[in-house]
């Protein structure tokens, strides 16, 4: 048994380094190494990348032993809903007792009348008066599985129709950069502009500022972070400088 484990340990090795850019089919590791699905997959004894991405190696605890786990951070992501996620949706269709909401995902969500603060009294027209096609709503995913479309709820605190401000869409893989470590980036942008920013899990961002100018500043700052095409995120100072520069110019 001990020999087996030793043999296993000898065969186990990680073939990539921190920060490496890998492509589909590239070998990440050989043997019994942990990795994150579905961005990597096991092909016999070999672990290969499935998407273009950047490698991150983290230490994890497995059965009381410290082992290295290969994380692949993809360049592009598709939003897949999970129960409990906060999402910003846009109404695209109205049924008799529900709205069909686009949540920036391959699956359209349903918002039943019972999951809003509206008291349903009659048909299509009343639903339309509360929430029309093209309007945005902040909601929570109640349920989603592979066989049924997601159901969302706008009943909780802070949830509901978005009446003012701006909603923008960013790349899902860049959301962690925009939030920053312990929300440092987003808090810095809020401080600099005076706007309130809500980042939903589906890569849509609601910006509400005291005036349009501050909202536009936030949009510029966020787009600047999103469009930075490099492996490491820009620092908070860089973005603060950028905002101040734009402020002076305009």
């Amino acid at each position: 048994m001990a020999e087996d484990q030793q043999a296993m340990a000898e065969q186990t090795r990680i073939m990539v380094g921190e920060g490496d850019v890998v492509l589909p089919g590239d070998v990440l590791a050989v043997g019994d190494v942990d990795f994150n699905t579905p961005f990597a997959y096991r092909d016999g004894d070999v672990i290969r990348a499935a998407v273009p991405g950047v490698v991150e190696i983290r230490k994890i605890d497995r059965n009381g032993k410290d082992v290295e786990k290969v994380y692949l951070k993809p360049f592009d992501l598709t939003y897949i809903p999970r129960p409990g996620h906060m999402v910003i949706g846009m109404v695209i269709d109205i049924g008799t007792t529900y709205w069909v909401v686009d949540i920036n995902s391959p699956y359209n969500a349903q918002l039943p009348v019972g999951e809003t603060i509206m008291k349903h009294t009659g048909g299509y027209d009343t639903l339309r008066r509360y929430l029309d096609v093209g309007e945005y709503i902040l909601a929570e995913i109640l349920s989603f599985d592979r066989n049924r479309d997601p159901i969302i709820s706008a009943k909780g605190k802070n949830y509901g129709k978005i009446l003012d401000g701006k909603v923008i869409e960013v790349r899902l893989s860049r959301v962690p950069w925009i939030v920053g470590k312990k929300k440092s980036m987003i808090e810095a942008i809020e401080r600099e502009t005076g706007a309130r920013i809500v980042i939903a899990d589906n890569a849509r961002i609601w910006i509400k500022g005291p005036d349009r100018r501050s909202e536009d500043l936030v949009v510029l700052a966020i787009k600047n972070i999103e469009q930075t095409k490099r492996v490491k995120p820009p620092s908070v100072e860089e973005i603060v400088d950028y905002i101040r520069k734009v402020k002076e110019e305009v």
């Binding site: 290969r48 998407v51 993809p74």
Partner: peptide, 11 residues
């Protein structure tokens, strides 16, 4: 497909 970030076994 790789550019779109769709998971696949190999190019």
């Amino acid at each position: 497909l790789a550019d779109a970030g769709i998971p696949m076994r190999d190019l």
